[in-house]
Design a protein around this nucleic acid. Structure first.
Length: 588
DNA sequence: TTTTGTTGTCATTGC
DNA sequence: ACGCAATGACAACAA
């Protein structure tokens, strides 16, 4: 559809490049390619392919050598075994990444250490808390210099001139605002979902997420445009792993690119398909696992639930000074409201079960049954709305906010059609429980209850009462705390009850099977006994007749079986008994 | 659209 | 009397 309309709208070279990008997105959708200059690009694609293959091989060898070296080093340091360092798995990948990076860039990259430190810091701090705040500034400060240094000057296609042409920025915003182009975002969203990158991190939900993009743009350009294939390969599996929670999400983000848009770079950026594949391919396993690990970590019980709330969009707009201060310096978020990550805060939130206010959640809360909670459920929506309103006024005109809302609402239903469902299927149950938990979290925060839900539920009575006595709580707060405790305990009780019930069912089924086996065995035994009895009777009868036929009277004649019978006593003695009595009795 | 399984919640009961 | 666990019943939701 776009390949028909857009060429008429953008006659200039610059705009043709824009179209090129858009068209390239359409290629994945099956749009015709012959509309544009095909042959020229095809040549470059082939050249790039060749060059990349060679360099990839070279890089591969180099990495293997370095890995072997690394393994040796770790073998020497430890007790003869390969023992991961004290930090978790991510740390391991970071260290290998550091070595991998430092090898080829040792001479070029003067800032390599700061970059590595930052990466390490990112890997260490991001899974624990405040991913939205800690990671991006880190990248902002350190990555751009190193990426500039990493740029090989001898490759003309990789000249990196960070320009920010406002007109093009504007053009991007307008283009992406077009309803027809929403499919772009959706496609990007889809591709990211398929790669497992839709694991919602906090910044992905952040409506003001755009603030981080100036820093990210460097990285996304490094991966998609600036960096030649050998450097891409260098980062393959290491760089991406290190920064995957944040950076990998953005590496393919179209709106990211706009910040440093240059017409001559656009071809390089989107035109070589293999570069994108080089980035996105290896990302899938590493980034996906990484992100899922992070998601797990972020939803682990040890993490303070009240702290987790601060990641939610609701809390971003709750008037806290820190996020606000950061948000205010980035009005570019307007263009990003159509970006994939930002497009569906509610969906993504529920995806990993992190906490936050989403439309669905708030509706859910309004629907929450039970008259006992009415006292605070009536209060909560007001608080929530106030918070949201405060946040929305923080840095943008109201109209922009409304526009953003409209766009988000546009995109969300399309997502709800199931595009992003498969990655979350295995987390569904977890998601639900955490969503439910988050409701109490949200209520608790809405009423500003100074305890964590975890404490409210799990504290012993005495400690709980002591904790409650230390704070002056209103009636609504008390009611909410009691309900949270009651619900939490009852939830656990119900889970235990069901578990027991299932165990009972399993036990009864086992018992039933056992009894059936017993019955079968006994029936078989009975049949055998019966058969044996029949056989013994038969033998006895045969023996009887045999013995009887051998008996003779004083005349040498055999006894008539009608007149005599054989009877035996308990001691084994056998008597020949005449049947006369019986005959007499009969006659009588 | 209906069915089925899962989960959270409420009401009740008994300890 | 109070707290709590256990459990049946119901509703919401997802597959």
């Amino acid at each position: 559809m776009m390949d028909i309309e857009l060429p008429k709208m953008h006659p200039s070279q610059q705009d043709m490049d824009l179209i090129d990008i858009l068209w390239r997105q359409d290629v994945d959708l099956g749009a015709g390619r012959e509309v544009f200059d095909f042959s020229y690009r095809q040549k470059e694609v082939e050249l790039r392919l060749q060059r990349e293959k060679e360099e990839e091989k070279q890089q591969q060898r180099q990495r293997e050598q370095e890995k072997a070296l690394l393994a040796q080093l770790q073998l020497d340091e430890e007790t003869g075994e390969f023992v991961p360092r004290s930090a978790p798995l991510t740390q391991d990948t970071v260290t290998s990444a550091q070595i991998t990076q430092n090898g080829p860039f040792a001479e070029l990259d003067g800032d390599a250490m700061s970059f590595d430190e930052c990466m390490q810091l990112l890997a260490e701090t991001f899974p624990l808390d405040e991913p939205a705040e800690s990671a991006p500034p880190c990248l902002d400060t350190s990555v751009p210099p190193s990426t500039d240094l990493m740029m090989p000057p001898d490759i003309p296609t990789c000249t990196h001139n960070p320009l920010l042409p406002g007109s093009l920025d504007q053009a991007w915003m307008e283009l992406l605002a077009l309803p027809e182009l929403q499919c772009l975002n959706m496609q990007m969203q889809e591709s990211l979902d398929m790669d497992g990158f839709m694991k919602p991190s906090a910044e992905a939900q952040d409506p003001n997420y755009s603030q981080y993009l100036p820093g990210m743009d460097h990285l996304s350009l490094v991966q998609t445009e600036v960096c030649p294939p050998e450097y891409i390969n260098t980062y393959d599996g290491s760089f991406n792993t290190m920064v995957s929670p944040n950076l990998s999400q953005m590496s393919l983000n179209v709106p990211d690119v706009k910040a440093e848009f240059r017409p001559e770079e656009f071809n390089e950026m989107f035109y070589p398909e293999m570069e994108v594949k080089v980035n996105s391919g290896p990302l899938v396993p590493d980034g996906g696992n990484m992100v899922s690990q992070l998601a797990e970590i972020s939803s682990n019980p040890p993490v303070n639930p009240m702290d987790l709330q601060s990641f939610s969009p609701g809390s971003f707009s709750s008037g806290k000074p820190e996020p606000k201060a950061e948000f205010q310096d980035s009005d570019s978020g307007l263009s990003l409201d159509s970006s994939p990550q930002v497009s569906s805060p509610g969906k993504s939130l529920n995806g990993d079960g992190s906490f936050g206010f989403s439309d669905s959640d708030s509706e859910e809360m309004d629907d929450s049954p039970g008259g006992m909670e009415s006292d605070y459920t009536e209060i909560f929506p007001l608080v929530y709305l106030n918070d949201a309103a405060q946040g929305s006024l923080s840095s943008k005109p109201l109209s922009d906010q409304q526009e953003m809302k409209v766009k988000n609402q546009k995109i969300e239903p399309a997502e709800a059609n199931g595009h992003s469902k498969p990655p979350f299927t295995k987390d569904k149950q977890k998601k639900r429980s955490e969503t439910r938990l988050s409701r109490d979290e949200q209520r608790a925060k809405a009423l500003q209850i100074p305890f964590t839900v975890d404490k409210i539920i799990n504290l012993p009575v005495d400690d709980f009462n002591e904790m409650m006595s230390k704070h002056e709580l209103s009636e609504a707060q008390l009611a909410l705390v009691r309900d949270i405790r009651r619900r939490g305990k009852n939830k656990v009780a119900a889970q235990n009850c069901r578990k027991r019930k299932m165990e009972n069912i399993v036990g009864l089924e086992y018992e039933l099977d056992s009894l059936k086996e017993d019955k079968e065995r006994l029936m078989k035994e009975k049949s055998e006994r019966s058969s044996s009895l029949r056989e013994m009777k038969q033998q006895l009868s045969t023996l009887y007749h045999e013995v009887f036929s051998m008996l003779r009277d004083e005349h040498g004649k055999p006894f008539s079986p009608n007149e005599y019978s054989l009877q035996h006593t308990a001691d084994g003695t056998v008597f020949l008994v005449p049947r006369l009595k019986k005959i007499l009795v009969k006659n009588n």
